[in-house]
């Protein structure tokens, strides 16, 4: 067992974990944060993408012990004060999801992209989301949603951005 201390969505946890425990299993099975799904389990689909200390990573491809001391943000930590993150709102409004399985990873990857490039072109959005697969939408509305979120200021300033309403459903 290894002792780790991780802050997830603003709450700090101290836990003894087996070194082989994957970060995604730690989030889902130990902390009960099932908003982060496992898709392929091979590092290819990006469904499990979370933010670790300011960078998107695939949580199925990282050990929980590697996240010791880190600050993790999952899809469940994006809404603030009962308000959706602009990306959540844009995915909702632009119909950027169908089954929704890829959505948490898409949104965390898009958040990473917009942080580095607040006003990307459609081409840059496609390139930036290369590691995230969607089996439903055909990507068009996902790209549209990310561009709409960028217009709403998702990549600039605080995460709560220019959001103007909407209930946090998750």
């Amino acid at each position: 067992m290894s002792r780790i201390s991780v802050t997830v969505d603003g709450t700090t946890y101290e836990d003894d974990v087996e070194p082989r425990l994957l970060l995604v299993h730690y989030l889902r099975d130990r902390l009960g944060l099932t908003g982060t799904p496992v898709g392929c389990d091979t590092g290819n689909c990006g469904a499990c993408t979370v933010d670790v200390s300011g960078a998107s990573v695939k949580s199925c491809s990282m050990l929980a012990v590697q996240a010791d001391g880190a600050e993790v943000t999952t899809i469940q930590g994006l809404a603030a004060d009962g308000r959706w993150h602009p990306l959540q709102r844009a995915f909702h409004e632009e119909h950027g999801l169908q089954c929704g399985y890829c959505t948490p990873g898409m949104i965390l990857a898009a958040r990473d992209l917009l942080r580095a490039n607040p006003h990307p072109t459609a081409e840059e959005v496609r390139h930036g989301l290369e590691g995230n697969l969607c089996r439903c939408t055909g990507y068009q509305n996902i790209v549209r949603a990310v561009l709409a979120a960028a217009d709403a200021g998702a990549g600039t300033g605080a995460d709560s951005g220019a959001d103007t309403g909407g209930e946090a459903a998750i």
């Binding site: 590092g43 990006g46 993408t49 670790v52 960078a55 998107s56 990573v57 695939k58 491809s61 990282m62 990857a109 990473d112 992209l113 930036g128 290369e130 590691g131 995230n132």
Partner: peptide, 9 residues
């Protein structure tokens, strides 16, 4: 190489 998330690690 790969994608942004893989390149971060």
């Amino acid at each position: 190489v790969a994608d942004p998330a893989v390149r971060h690690l």
